[in-house]
Design a protein around this nucleic acid. Structure first.
Length: 570
RNA sequence: CGGGCCGUGGCGCAGUCUGGUAGCGCGCUUGACUGGGGGUCAAGAGGUCGCGGGUUCAAGUCCCGCCGGCCCGACCA
């Protein structure tokens, strides 16, 4: 490709509506443009990188024996009704109606459809199978953001394993786990695989592949020492032991005028530090008012609660509901002496004495509360959100909590979808059993953006060779100079013949412009061909990743460059 | 869905408070010089000021409605 005839619309300034680094750089470097919120067009350069990402994923999927499909992205209502997700998914799914009035959905994922096809399997002998595809997915995100990181229309590789039993599922799951590790290594990612909450996917185990990044939206607790990692929706930690004083024989009411928050009470004379307070939250769970107790300085990890109580519906109570149930407003709530309400307490409160909590009367609190003596706790659960510095549950080393991008997610689904779609096979004893499924996803466009998040500097993108739109740019310093022009053309041809993805910058621009553009676009290697070097019989090879330069004799420059590129391709 | 900010040549912005000739930088076109880090000079092209309505002699500017975008939150397989 010649830059003079390529469409690579680079921009000198950051686009005004971009915040995330990958968003800014992908737009500035001419890899994508926005059509509307959450929908982006990839330009030729962007699409080249995306295809490389896709090729890597395809290669690794084929390696584990997966077979590629192509499924429709428009689905009939009925199939989603069979799994119950027509109703359960809600506004997240794009729906439309055809001229006959039939309801349709734009697929946000394809469990139903693959299970539908899996119904053609009849014998355990045809299992196991791994089926996959690359397909556009649609999700009506409430708030698209950060360029390609959170969009409404995106490309995903999704695969589905079909097995006769749990053991088969475990094996397929492990193979995906390994394949994903290889894929992300080839993307240049340092991912952590974390246990996650499966949410409404159903199933019993799921692992997310998380890439540390400030542009991410998911919080992960990670132990550098032993490698423990978990989504904050699930992460656990060990707290330092607390020695409580003996306290009082019974709780004592005391006035706390104007105290509305944990902080107020901590600051107040005669109050108590946050870790000596009991925080009382009020939730409505399946219509029942429930009190959730946490230590004052701890936050509720709501997903933990959802995962453990198995409720249909759960929401924080409205202020009026709280008054009706407890007779006080938030700020003075407590669980002492409310035997008719269901009380769930966080494990960190177990055994605590001499605590302070609201008296269920505005402007008053209780001190000297001994949790197990004074509160009728119905259930003890781990509900606390882990914070940085707390002890790793495996090795006790301090945990670090940071933002991450979810680049892949794998689920053990079980039989939810196969049962719904009637995907049954006969086992070796002739019994009809539902196929045991797993589901495995990688967002390609999100990975593209994540690569930029992970590989860039002040000047632009630094593509790993594996996913670079072009591996080498030949920069012609002075195109009008015949010697310079010809030497560059010869090199360009040789590299092309050797199978290198090479772009020649033959534009009639000043060298500075070309250098800046090359850095912005992020070619892993730049070969500078100019009169100065040629005078000494050399061209200069610059490696984008570390800025290292070396002069190569013109005669075997091509070989050296080919070697350098192949060395980094894997 | 709640809160905040913003829509003015391709990109980034000023102008809006206080109504009166649409402006700047970059980019683009043509020519010349220049040629190893966004160069210089000269001459140009390019704008229904997001859309609709209203007020006014006069609206980018004031009023009403709508649309679109970004950020925070809620939400999120």
């Amino acid at each position: 490709m010649r830059w003079s005839s390529a469409f690579i619309p680079t921009l000198r300034d950051d686009p005004a509506d971009a915040e995330a680094i990958s968003h800014k750089l992908l737009v500035r470097a001419g890899f994508m443009r926005q059509l509307m919120a959450g929908h982006y067009s990839l330009t030729p350069a962007g699409f080249r990188s995306l295809r490389k990402i896709e090729a890597i994923v395809r290669e690794e999927m084929e390696k584990i024996g997966a077979q590629e499909f192509r499924l429709p992205c428009m689905h009939p209502r009925e199939i989603w009704e069979k799994s119950g997700r027509w109703d359960s998914v809600g506004e997240e799914m794009f729906r439309l109606r055809d001229r006959k009035g039939a309801d349709l959905a734009l697929g946000m994922t394809h469990e139903e459809i693959f299970a539908y096809h899996a119904a053609e399997l009849h014998s355990y002998r045809s299992l196991p199978q791994i089926w996959y595809q690359f397909q556009t997915k649609f999700r009506d995100e409430a708030r698209p953001k950060s360029g390609l990181l959170r969009v409404r229309e995106f490309t995903m590789k999704d695969s589905y394993s079909l097995d006769i039993d749990e053991a088969g599922l475990d094996a397929a799951f492990d193979r995906h786990l390994e394949a994903y590790r290889r894929i992300f290594r080839r993307f240049g990612f340092d991912v952590v695989a974390v246990e996650a909450s499966s949410g409404v996917m159903g199933g019993n185990q799921s692992i997310e592949f998380m890439l540390k990044s400030d542009a991410g939206e998911d919080w992960v607790a990670h132990c550098e020492k032993c490698g423990y990692a978990a989504n904050l929706e699930k992460a656990e930690s060990i707290l330092p032991e607390i020695e409580d004083p003996e306290g009082r024989p019974a709780p004592e009411r005391f006035p706390t005028p104007g105290v509305k928050t944990i902080e107020d009470l901590a600051r107040m004379e005669g109050g108590a530090e946050a870790s000596r307070q009991i925080k009382t939250l009020v939730y409505v769970i399946d219509g029942k008012t429930v009190l959730i107790l946490l230590r004052g300085d701890h936050s509720l990890a709501e997903q933990k609660l959802i995962d453990q109580v198995e409720a249909e519906e759960m929401r924080p109570a409205q202020p009026e509901e709280i008054r009706a149930a407890l007779g006080a407003s938030p700020g003075s709530l407590g669980a002492v002496g409310v035997p008719d309400l269901y009380v769930i307490a966080d494990e960190a409160l177990r055994g605590r004495r001499d605590m302070v909590t609201g008296a269920n009367e505005d402007g008053f609190h209780l001190r000297g509360v001994e949790v197990e003596r004074d509160i009728e706790v119905k259930a003890w659960l781990d509900l606390r959100e882990v914070t940085s510095g707390e002890g790793c549950p495996m090795c006790r080393a301090p945990l670090s909590v940071h933002k991450t991008i979810e680049v892949g997610h794998i689920f053990k689904l079980g039989t939810k979808y196969s049962e719904a779609m009637g995907a049954l096979v006969q086992d070796e004893k002739g019994r009809s059993v539902p196929i045991v499924m797993g589901s495995y996803g990688i967002g390609l466009d999100r990975s593209l953006a994540a690569i930029v998040e992970a590989h860039h500097d002040e000047s632009g993108i630094c593509w790993p060779v594996n996913v670079a739109p072009w591996e080498v740019v030949v920069t012609v310093v002075k195109p009008k100079d015949v010697e310079c022009h010809e030497a560059a053309e010869r090199l360009y041809e040789k590299l092309g013949e050797a199978g290198i993805d090479v772009l020649i910058d033959d534009r009639d621009e000043r060298p500075g412009v070309k250098f800046k553009d090359a850095e912005l676009v992020g070619f892993p290697y730049r070969v500078t061909v100019g009169p100065k070097g040629l005078g000494e019989g050399v061209v200069e090879l610059l490696r984008r990743a570390d800025g290292s330069k070396r002069d190569l004799p013109v005669a075997h420059a091509a070989e050296t460059i080919v070697e350098a590129v192949l060395d980094e391709r894997f």
